[in-house]
């Protein structure tokens, strides 16, 4: 059986094609202002990668993410919360807590042995602790997202950044820069402040190991390191790209749907 999962997020569009339980293609492209086109482009690229000539070769497609209603070729849409849980669980079956950090929000899911969501929390009306936040910080620090992520850049004495709002947090960082603070300490401070917020979200659903990070920001090594310090447990490394976890989850649900 060949199925597809398409995750249209605020910042990137992801498509995954799975055949008999294995990923045979996966793509990540920047989101456009037309979610239906982002979906089409991501899926076309995945089809090419999988050597498939047409979307009709897929038995079932599930859409997810903010643009899930605009994935016109999907037969059904499922929330990204359920999909990330499923995807992370498939990638690593021992995972019980999933921290999904996307472009414009973050979510923490507590999941069952079967990868089903038991409880979840989602950040509210604030971009702090999301991809958008890190992009803003990278701009102010002229260091690029890699600069924020790099483990070498995590200063030993993280600066204190307390603002709950990403705009005000940016002002705090500008103040630190102007006070002559060490850039590495500021970077560590940024990852530290986001980890603190994620920690309290994790505590709300209850910390159960293993913990995994998904979403684009899961690739921020500095953040993962800071989060481990806050949670006092290590974060499980997923054997696949954590950014496609939502699309993988959607494809796995597509298998179930196709089977009826």
């Amino acid at each position: 059986m060949i199925v597809g999962g398409c995750d249209i997020g605020s910042t990137t569009g992801k498509a995954v094609i799975m055949k008999d339980g294995e990923i045979i293609a996966s793509t990540i492209i920047p989101s456009t202002t037309k979610p239906e086109e982002t979906a089409r482009m991501a899926m076309d690229e995945a089809l090419k990668q999988a050597d498939l000539s047409s979307i009709d070769d897929l038995d079932y497609i599930v859409g997810t993410g903010y643009g899930r209603l605009k994935v016109q070729f999907a037969k059904e849409n499922i929330s990204e919360i359920s999909c990330h849980a499923r995807g992370a669980h498939w990638m690593s079956p021992t995972v019980r807590t999933v921290v999904d950090i996307g472009g414009q929000d973050c979510k923490v899911m507590s999941i069952s042995d079967e990868g089903k969501v038991v409880e979840f929390v989602m950040n509210d009306r604030c971009a702090a602790g999301t991809g958008r936040f890190f992009e803003g910080m990278a701009r102010v620090l002229h260091c690029g997202l890699d600069g924020i992520s790099s483990l070498e850049n995590q200063g030993a004495e993280p600066s204190t950044i307390t603002s709950q709002c990403s705009v005000f947090a940016e002002s705090e960082v500008v103040t630190l820069i102007n006070e002559g603070s060490d850039l590495k300490n500021i970077i560590a401070g940024i990852n530290n402040s986001v980890s603190g917020r994620l920690n309290s979200m994790v505590r709300k659903v209850g910390l159960v190991e293993d913990v995994a990070l998904t979403g684009g920001c899961a690739k921020n090594a500095g953040l993962a390191k800071a989060l481990e310090k806050h949670l006092k447990v290590s974060v499980k490394q997923l054997p696949h790209d954590p950014q496609i976890a939502g699309a993988v989850g959607a494809a796995l649900i597509a298998v179930e749907k196709a089977a009826g």
């Binding site: 499922i78 929330s79 089903k116 038991v118 979840f120």
Partner: peptide, 17 residues
Amino acid sequence: GQLRTRVQAFLEMLGGK
């Protein structure tokens, strides 16, 4: 948008998806 995501996920959770 965020409201719909939360409610949909909640219903999926209730339905055991």
